[in-house]
Write a protein that binds this DNA or RNA. Sequence first.
RNA 1: CGAGUCGGUCGGAUGAUCGCGGUAGCCGCAAGGUUAUCGAGGAAAGUCCGGACUCCAUAGGGCAAGAGUGGUGGAUAACGUCCACCUGGGGCGACCCACGGGAAAGUGCAACAGAAAGUAAACCGCCUAUCUUCAUUUAUGGAGAUAGGUAAGGGUGAAACGGUGAGGUAAGAGCUCACCAGUACUUAUGGCGACAUAGGUAGCUAGGUAAACCCCACUCGGAGCAAGACCAAGUAGCAGGUGACUGCCCGUCACACGCCUGCAGGUAGGUUGCAACAGGUUGUUGGUAACAACAAUCGCAGAUGGAUGAUCAUCGCGCGCAAGCGUACAGAAUCCGGCUUACAGACCGACUCGUCUA
Length: 111
Amino acid sequence: MLPASARLRKSSEISAVMKSGTRFSAKLVVLHVAQSSSEHTKVAFAVGKNVGNSVVRHKVTRQLRHAITPLIGSFPAGSHVVIRALPEANQASFSQLSENLKFALSKLAKS
RNA sequence: CGAGUCGGUCGGAUGAUCGCGGUAGCCGCAAGGUUAUCGAGGAAAGUCCGGACUCCAUAGGGCAAGAGUGGUGGAUAACGUCCACCUGGGGCGACCCACGGGAAAGUGCAACAGAAAGUAAACCGCCUAUCUUCAUUUAUGGAGAUAGGUAAGGGUGAAACGGUGAGGUAAGAGCUCACCAGUACUUAUGGCGACAUAGGUAGCUAGGUAAACCCCACUCGGAGCAAGACCAAGUAGCAGGUGACUGCCCGUCACACGCCUGCAGGUAGGUUGCAACAGGUUGUUGGUAACAACAAUCGCAGAUGGAUGAUCAUCGCGCGCAAGCGUACAGAAUCCGGCUUACAGACCGACUCGUCUA
């Protein structure tokens, strides 16, 4: 679990990011990033039913959460981020997920 | 030792590093920090039953409709659950299986085959009579037709209107008799009861299907924690403006048309409901048992885009010569009691049958 300040909690904010944010995709995950006026970078996860059953989805979410924690500082301050998992993520190891997130972040840095 | 039946338990372990949520204490105005402690399951699943709880409806009662249940007795808050027993069926046995009321209240249904699937019915066969014809031993036999009798035999089917034997008959038939099976009514005994055992009477046979309609008995108001309660931005709504005539009310005039104040309503959002009880464990007593009573003891998740973890190492277990691979089903969402379904593997207890030894 991320600290409360780093969690994106309101469904209205999340849907706003999904609609209007910029997408950066990798093999296993897709980042949706949008700027906001708040001080903290906030993160939310979207793991759909096509990824697997409840146990698998929860496991992927936990792995993503721990993989993103050291990378939060790499986002521009005040970013709102939604990390969407693709179906192939259910087979991935922690290091693979971590690599994917870094790859997507490098795309963000270039833009 | 082998084969099996029933019931139950567990379902990875340890360490290191980095994290999250609740509660309590302390510090802090607060944000928060810090210490301690707790933090997924046997099915948390399917959401199929039953309750608690909440709101709505309801004077009280009845009838109808609709839905559900269906051997008997008990357990329980309740149940479609559980226990014991009965009946029927299966197994050498331990034991297992059964949506187990009514088919002589009525309506309906039954593929294919078959003559016929129900107030029965004549395809083959068997028997009798009449007629025709053939043969001869001249009153008998064969063949055919017509009319009738016959459910014993054949054949069909999942199922065909009791079974065996004897009498009887033209041939047959519960037509009659004996025994057996079954039905209805009834008596006695045992049992709380379902029912069992033994007898009597009747009529001689009454098919299946009620998870088809239906009949009988019993049960049921509806919606659900996104219930409900409280607080409450914003927007829109209603009320109240300031000055002068005039000290107050009404009225008139001027200024402003924005802001402020109040109000109820209640959206976003927040708080609550929300975790200490039909509670777990151990023991004693009662009960065949389900279970109940009593005593001691324990405190045992509470999130809300949703915590309960991530990574690494070592070990365990299974497969494999080894490298190595695998390590199930599955993630709380108001809470309990059940049912059903999924599940790698490990373990314990009771009992049955067989073989060997003593």
